[in-house]
Design a protein around this nucleic acid. Structure first.
Lengths: 194, 194, 194, 194
DNA sequence: CATGAATGAGAATTCATTCAT
DNA sequence: TATGAATGAATTCTCATTCAT
């Protein structure tokens, strides 16, 4: 239904991210977003079917890109441990470089009700699968301890990274990507086959 | 301002948890909560200054209790590894036994805007401190690897547990507490001094 | 869902009729109606689920009452011709005494789309049935010419009355009830068994 | 202001009738009508000053044509009774053959507010005059009972026909023109001079 | 203390109309 | 002429909060 071309689509999405990061989701009216984007309220509805759809696009566009970027970073690497290292690095580096988007996607759009959850779930699951494949592979080739359920391992990896990012979001007095080496070490120590 | 005693206070809080767990935060009007609690809409305002304050009380009451409970569980234990084990067990067991509260506090009240965040932060930080003390102690007595920053370690522990609970909340087809042993093993492997 | 008691329910309905009769349906916002009724906008929604429901109530309340009034007027009469005479008289007299309601129900609420049509149809059909029973009876007892289909006769009777009322609504320079004798004569002449 | 020639003018009018008959007036946006006509939204405003003007044209074009057609049908007839017969026949036959237009003009454009009413009134009055002339003539030459006011008679004739058409519009399970003989008989019985 | 009817400030969305191309 | 993207005023409905009883 809604068209998805042109600068305006992008401008509105960008404005949405900025407004939400600044004011919080529940205080970000179409009103504000439109003004920030430099368009009329009605214009938003030429590009999005509803506010909710817009949020879904915000999430998918950014998180989708994020997942692909991480996947690409790991593509050339064959060693499982190095892959994990790369994942940790990429995760923290990319989000550090995109504070607003990180806030919106990780914190603000955690909104549980609404259809949003359903729609965003899919993209997130892509990331989960990426991690789980890495785990599986590492367990198969003897790099990682094979006694742990891969879903559980994924939850540890993702949960750890997520919590680290969230802490940083609330208190940005340190470098996020700077934590990568330690985080990697913690994870690899726990996961390595002995 | 508002008095905080009597069965009604508790009844309203309980009703709030139930209604929010059932309908989602943004679909839980004072209206519904009051009816569930068996009081008039206006009565809610005799016990709480605002809906937001009510949410804060919901969070504090439950999470505060949760933290104390966990602390108590660990009180008698002297061995750091066993303490960690107990923490993992208690975390998962208590939340498993309180699905509604778990949903509300971990998922629904993630709402970032609202003053809520600020208020909930304090209680949450008490939990963080509890974990960090455990880490510190373990590092001091040589149980845990001392090279990791205690805050980072706390984030790994809490992040892992949190993600595991959230996964379970969205798909309760398995026992949450049943995961405790594996989770503990994963964490202890990563954290142990070698 | 919506309660239907008290003066306010009536006050809002009355205000609606007045506002619609004055400004026309499509220019009668909840806004205006609420102000006219002396209540807040939101109050309207305590008594009606939606603007549409309100319109349905306006129609049903008035037309429903109208039909009953007409039926009552004819109750004691046994002669079919006299019954028809009474129907014509009552129809024109009652509407003449309720100009605003006549305008709203006969002219403004002719709105075709919306669910309204469906809901109002039922009440209107009650009136149609009343007329058709009268026709049937008159044909059975030999007062009316039995060669005409009763539905067709009903359409002539109702259509005639309706058109007369509508003309009057648009140009109230004459007495509506004053037309009754002539209208009755016209109808009875056409319908009488020869 | 707006030019009123060319295929596009006609195409838009035709599209309007189709869209309105299908979706109802209040759900027929310029948007839809333009698409149906195969032109851009803006183009509509090259041919019509406003949506309202467009509706007026729809009405006038069709009803105007209708009136002329009926007048023509009656032109050669000298006998008043036969003229009435022809009127009834033509009225029902023409509308039966133009269901969409009938719906739009008789049902959808009954919208009372909007300036429309005023504009459509004129065309409608032409039809009324046609009927009234017929009545006058018939009363003058002794065919019709002269005791009835000609306006009243016109209302009976038009009201009857209108109600019959509306009933048919809502339930097209029978032939409309097939009713002509009975309708004529009903009317002539009532109107004839005895 | 308790009630619940009333409030009214929003907020999302629609759509006739315009105007730069 | 024709386009169709952009506009923004307008409108319905929601819901936290108040206050007279």
């Amino acid at each position: 239904m809604a068209k998805k071309k042109g600068e305006k689509y992008e401008a509105i999405l960008e404005a949405a991210v900025k407004v939400i990061a600044t004011n919080g989701y529940s205080n970000s009216q179409i009103n504000k977003i439109a003004r920030e984007a430099g368009v009329a309220d009605g214009t938003v509805y030429l590009y999005f079917d509803s506010k909710e759809e817009m949020m879904i696009d915000v999430f998918n566009e950014f998180v989708g890109g994020f997942v692909e970027e991480v996947r690409l970073e790991m593509a050339d690497i064959t060693d499982s441990a190095q892959k994990l290292q790369k994942l940790v690095e990429a995760h923290l580096t990319i989000l550090e470089a995109n504070y607003n988007k990180a806030v919106v996607c990780l914190v603000e759009l955690r909104q549980p009700d609404i259809k949003l959850r359903q729609a965003t779930g899919e993209v997130l699951r892509r990331y989960f699968r990426l991690i789980e494949e890495l785990v599986e592979e590492g367990q198969a080739n003897g790099t990682f301890n094979a006694e742990f359920d891969k879903h559980l391992v994924r939850r540890m990896i993702y949960g750890t990274l997520d919590e680290i990012v969230i802490s940083w979001v609330y208190n940005r007095r340190y470098s996020l990507s700077g934590q990568a080496p330690q985080v990697y070490k913690m994870l690899i120590d726990g996961l390595s086959a002995s």
